[in-house]
């Protein structure tokens, strides 16, 4: 009886603090959402905003701007950031390496390459049936393709920094192919591609938002159900297998989920740097745990918050000029990579 009694005192601090951190993150994310909807290159008064928000069918300019530009963009930023962070968390556990993420491993580059095929060439023009989703599917294929190559190399060479270099090289290769395609492409297409490649949550259409919510949401539910084997996998494959994890199925599922999430976001928002790598670390620090039952939702909230903040900065600092999103994320992401490289032992 005394042992059972003492267990209750052993409740880890991280679990006790989790609700507080969740609450704080949720409030901050909501604030960011409101700010992203409320602020923009055109100023509106609060009553105007309220009027437009409550009457989405209005013919007014305010209503149009809110419902077709600002709200989709704000939602896209939250969910895009959330999914990139979740993808990064998965990849860090999968590779047992703290300095990986979808962008760093070249997965975003693979997606970019395939999207450049869609955007720059006429190969897919006749596939009208798939048009809304064609770039998403292409991005997923590209992400998965690069992932398989990185995996093949990672199985031969061990070591965190090697993986980083492999990812960089994949990025260069994919960039080279995109550059060659650009050279042959028509001018108008190039402009669109270049803008897309800088990364931005602008220009999301509602059908893309729904795709993001439904498919992404389904993947997230699936992922949350994998948090138990993900926790076991923190100890490495051999321990995980000895505890009853079906390693082959688990590995495939994790790869499909992370490529799916990263590919989807990349196809719509362009390659967004470092969110996937940096946010999981911020979440670990914030929640003080490696428990994925807390970290998966935690990293998502944190990712949504960070991406929204970066988007707000990108479009308001030099307004009306909009800064590329990846430039802003790189400003805080790259120092984190360097810091992690300097700190030799990082916890997952």
């Amino acid at each position: 009886m005394s042992t059972a009694q003492s267990c209750c005192d052993l409740r880890p601090i991280s679990v006790r603090r989790a609700p507080l951190v969740f609450g704080l993150l949720a409030v901050l994310t909501l604030v960011m959402l409101v700010l992203n909807v409320g602020f923009g290159s055109i100023h509106f008064t609060l009553p105007q905003l309220w009027q437009a928000l409550t009457h989405p069918q209005d013919e007014s300019t305010i209503s149009f701007i809110l419902w077709n530009i600002r709200i989709p963009r704000a939602i896209a930023a939250v969910f895009g950031g959330a999914y990139l962070a979740a993808a990064g968390l998965l990849l860090q556990i999968y590779f047992r390496n703290p300095i990986v993420g979808p962008y760093i491993l070249g997965i975003s580059s693979g997606a970019t390459l395939m999207v450049s095929f869609v955007m720059l060439t006429s190969v897919t023009v006749s596939w009208t049936l798939f048009t809304p989703f064609i770039s998403t599917l292409a991005a997923f294929a590209g992400a998965y393709g690069v992932m398989l190559i990185v995996l093949a190399i990672a199985s031969r060479v061990k070591g965190g920094v090697t993986l980083l270099i492999v990812g960089l090289m994949m990025g260069y290769l994919c960039g080279a192919v995109s550059a060659i395609l650009t050279a042959f492409a028509e001018k108008e297409k190039i402009k669109g591609f270049v803008l897309w490649q800088l990364g931005s949550f602008s220009g999301f259409k509602w059908n893309e938002i729904w795709l993001l919510l439904v498919v992404g949401g389904a993947i997230m539910v699936l992922l949350y159900l994998q948090s138990k084997p993900l926790n076991a996998f923190l100890l490495g494959e051999e321990y995980a297998a000895s505890m009853g994890v079906n390693i082959r199925r688990f590995r495939l599922l994790i790869l499909l989920c992370s490529c799916g999430l990263a590919g989807m976001v990349t196809s719509m928002a362009g390659p967004v740097a470092f969110v996937g790598m940096a946010v999981p670390h911020m979440a670990r620090l914030g929640f003080g745990t490696s428990d994925n039952r807390i970290l998966i939702p935690g990293a998502c909230l944190m990712g949504g918050l960070v991406a929204s903040l970066c988007d707000l900065i990108a479009r308001s600092v030099m307004a009306p000029v909009e800064l590329p999103l990846s430039a802003i994320t790189a400003f805080f992401g790259a120092p984190i990579v360097i810091m992690l490289l300097l700190k030799r032992r990082v916890k997952l």
Partner: peptide, 12 residues
Amino acid sequence: DKLSPPLFSVYE
């Protein structure tokens, strides 16, 4: 094999 320790208490 030395494992990279996760952020867990001993109990967790």
